[in-house]
Nucleic acid binder design. Structure first.
Length: 552
RNA sequence: GGCCCGUUGGUAAAGCGGUUAAUACACCGCCCUUUCACGGCGGAGACAUGGGUUCGAGUCCCGUACGGGUCACCA
């Protein structure tokens, strides 16, 4: 009896690995093309860190003429969630990160290296496990959970390294015929990797992001096939990334310490190992301590959060890209209208330690992104958001589309667009005073600034309405009239004039404009007043101004 | 605890043995300006710490502190 017999007893029906090696030939890609993947578990929640990985992986693949694929790692069936795969696919799509190949819904896929869902590849893993058993590089382990717990307790008491290695790896030394006997007797078992590593020896590894790292060799006989016949992450990673032709494994740096094991697995299986790029996680500060963004505590950890508050997906993408390569924002300033895709990402320029998530910075980026949108785009995107999250805003926008477009178009599309909307959530507050039905319903509070004398305000407004206001004026005429009005009341026509001789005036044109602005809109800060008047129309302007002075 | 990794203004982050230690966001001031925003100019603010190596250290080496990761039939 030898290893081959043992392998046959355990996996009598699986195919030979040569079948899979032929079925999944090496990819025919140009020199330098990088193949990457996003490989999440369908646990019902796409984390911002997962998106971050995807942004990087997709970018690297695309800019080298390679492939970015999506593989679902559902080998832990306990954690699986209904419609988890669809959730991931939809989220990637929303953020423009759809893969070139991989799963396209719960159980269908595109691409030549599928299935791209691990639970559907069970027999593939088993074929390779069988191969390892035949080689004597894997063996069945009959240890019960209680035995393992006991062993761990002993190790801890003796202050030894925990785990299944060296003298502790009992089943590793069971003779083949004995093992076969146990299996035939119906004993439960799992398959372990027979590590040839030695803890006192070092291996050198070069990580694309983290640089050179020395590790002790792995000497743990880790589980490769679990009791349910499915592989563990480590084994599936080796088999899948080999068969699928992944050239660069881009993943979270919680995997860094598994590298010695993974390298060993690749070697033992006779695979060429991929390059590794371990990404530092996105962190959050709490009570002075840094920690990973947590799905339980931090709403911003879920990518769905950004849709809720109304931050455009491309703003999130750009923010993530900026965390990845901080020279992105410099590039962005120089290439304002270029597509994000044109930026060249460099893995080796990524930070080795985790960046704190900065929502203020994100909003700044978002404001810039939104300021570039046309009024039609703003209208459509804000409306889409409002349909889900703000019924009132939805009504407002839909009731009069043409009018809303005019409102949203104020100071938009010119050389210095306003940057006052960071999230769709902000839109309502920004435009609501422009709608008469809302404006007159709300009864604005007028908080005057420099000119506060009621009689003075009344006179200014009345004079403006009676002698100067004409909705048909062009901007220059309109503005000259405000100047005339200012002069008439003893205010300087120009700010400069006033500053040169403040004693000669009661104030300057800015003070007069502010009074009109406040009476017109109920607020001191608004976009260009001329445009506002044009949009509001004659009747509304007069009605608003009159209402303001009546209340004085 | 063992093993890895890290630590430059509030945040992100250039820097690669010789720099007045960039830049962006945030903050403050000024200018522009009918307000705000935009834009322009300016300001405050940092190399965790102790030892080496060197003519010279943010940069190289060692220690310490602090932070992060990892040590499952989870990924």
């Amino acid at each position: 009896m030898d290893y081959k017999d043992l392998a046959n007893v355990i996996f009598p029906y699986v195919k030979d690995i040569s079948y899979y090696e032929e079925k999944y030939p090496r990819r025919n890609l140009p020199e330098g093309a990088v193949v990457t993947r996003f490989a999440p578990s369908p646990t019902g929640f796409v984390h911002i860190g997962g998106l971050y990985q995807s942004v990087i992986a997709k970018k690297i693949a695309n800019q080298t003429g390679g492939v970015f694929f999506l593989r679902i790692e559902d080998t832990d069936q306990k954690r699986e969630v209904e419609k988890g795969v669809t959730g991931i696919i939809d989220a990637l799509k929303e953020f423009g990160m759809s893969p070139d190949e991989g799963m396209i819904n719960e159980d269908e896929y595109v691409g030549n290296y599928g299935p791209y869902k691990q639970s559907l590849r069970k027999e593939i893993y088993q074929a390779y496990a069988k191969y390892l058993i035949e080689k004597g590089d894997a063996y069945p382990c009959f240890c019960k959970q209680e035995q393992l717990d006991e062993m761990r307790a002993k190790q801890e008491n003796a202050k030894l390294r925990t785990g299944y290695y060296g003298v502790w790896s009992k089943c590793r030394h069971i003779p083949v015929n004995e093992a076969i006997q146990k299996i035939n007797d119906g004993e439960d078992y799992i398959i372990r990797f027979k590590s040839q590593g030695r803890e006192d020896k070092k291996i050198k590894h070069h990580d694309v992001i983290k640089g050179n790292i020395d590790f002790p060799e792995n000497d743990q006989d880790i589980v490769i096939i679990k009791a349910d016949g499915l592989p563990t992450y480590h084994f599936a990673h080796a088999v899948d990334d080999h068969l699928m032709g992944t050239t660069h494994v881009i993943r979270g740096d919680e995997w860094l310490s598994s590298v010695p094991l993974h390298l060993q697995l690749f070697q033992s299986l006779g695979f060429k190992s991929p390059k590794y790029a371990h990404i530092a996680p996105i962190m959050k500060e709490e009570n002075g301590a840094k920690r990973k963004l947590s799905k339980r505590k931090d709403p911003e950890a879920a990518v769905s959060y950004y849709a809720e508050v109304g931050i455009p997906e491309e703003a999130v993408d750009e923010y993530l890209l900026n965390i990845a390569n901080s020279n992105f924002e410099q590039w962005r300033r120089q290439n304002q209208d270029a597509k994000m895709e044109e930026f060249e990402l460099q893995l080796n320029k990524m930070s080795v330690s985790g960046a704190l998530f900065d929502i203020v910075k994100l909003c700044d980026i978002s404001k810039r992104v939104i300021s570039k949108y046309t009024k039609e785009e703003v209208y459509e995107k804000a409306l889409n958001w409002a349909k889900k999250y703000d019924k009132h805003l939805e009504e407002l926008l839909e009731k009069n589309k043409e009018y809303s477009l005019k409102v949203l178009g104020i100071e938009r599309g010119n050389l210095k667009p306003r940057r006052d909307i960071g999230k769709w959530e902000d839109v309502k507050e920004n435009i609501i005073y422009m709608y008469d039905e809302e404006y007159f319903k709300e009864k604005p509070q007028y908080e005057f600034q420099k000119i506060t004398d009621k009689e003075e305000i009344k006179n200014i407004i009345n004079t403006y309405i009676e002698e100067y206001f004409d909705i048909n004026d062009d901007k220059e005429t309109w503005f000259n009239k405000i100047k005339d009005l200012s002069e008439k009341f003893g205010y300087a026509r120009e700010t400069k004039e006033y500053k040169q001789n403040p004693d000669n005036f009661k104030g300057h044109i800015g003070d007069i404009s502010t009074v009109i602005r406040i009476c017109l809109t109920g607020r001191a800060n608004t976009p260009d007043m001329f445009e506002i008047m044009k949009v509001l129309g004659k009747e509304s302007v007069i009605k608003r101004l009159k209402m303001a002075i009546e209340k004085l």
